[in-house]
Amino acid sequence: MGGVKTVKTNSQVMKQTSDEGTWSKHWHAVKKDWRLYVLLLPMVLWFALWSYKPMGGLLIAFKNYDAAKGVLGSDFVGFSNFITLMFGTYATQFWTAFRNTFIISLYGIIFGFPIPILLALLMSEVRHKAYSKVMQTFSYLPHFLSEVTITGLVITLVYNGEVSTGVIAEALISLGWISENANIIQEASYFRPIYILTGIWKEAGYSSIVYFAAIMSISPTLYEALKMDGGNKLQEIRYVTFPGMAPTLIIMIILRIGKILSIGYERIILLYNANTYSSADVLSTFVYRIGLERGNQALGASADLFNAIIAFALVIGANYISRQISETSLW
């Protein structure tokens, strides 16, 4: 078609000009604020190397992984690992872990999420500054203790052995809430309350910082206006504080939902035992056992990938719902 002359339409020319204009604008923006972009660079690199590059390792979920052959060199097995995991010999353990992950996380949201908010509200109402600071500092402290220390302490407190009985176990026995022979650390029905309460004790104070900051950023004039209108303390909380905190609350709940399948394994591994697996084993502990203890990394990776996909869907869903009902969302 050598004789045919290609003619650009007006719209094509306009798009090209517009594209050139956009790129040029971007370039000027970068050039203008290049110092900021340089500051951003380490973070971008950090994400690229530590968050995106390792994603390549997910390939082992589809491989008969052999460390000596490497990720790419290992034999491709398709969805075989997922089938073994969900419908094969590991099915019972996997689905138990999956169910427990949801339940424990849900309990965490129901019981654990409101406590830091409540704590922040209470702290914000304390007028004695020194007292407030001391209390806040004390509430943050457990966050800085290692999980090993925390779980060691919990086990000591609730253990009811042949000769040694922890203070909490003793108190529960005295109150008649548990039987004299009950060793609650060995009973599946007590695991979740122990886990959730430990988590609240450890993290409530530290998690309240963000809510406290949100409360502090609310303009005092709003409170004054409500007072002038005759509003009481509860109405202040309802009509000023909560609406003022709403964006923070929504973002925090979306993030929390995103982590619904990402329960950390440390505390659970340190607290659980064969008696409590039925209510304690979660996906992360399952992956730890399969991937690291048994050395079946491919199966561990499949469980983790499945976990991540569900978590991703949950974040998208929560974000969408949030955008629909409150105009606040992550993106």
């Binding site: 690229a48 390792g57 052959k69 490497g70 060199g73």
Partner: peptide
Amino acid sequence: LLLVAALLLVGCGGLDTSESD
């Protein structure tokens, strides 16, 4: 662009850490 760059990094990133056996 960052995502593309990261994916490229993954692709070229020497996942195959060992030589063929």
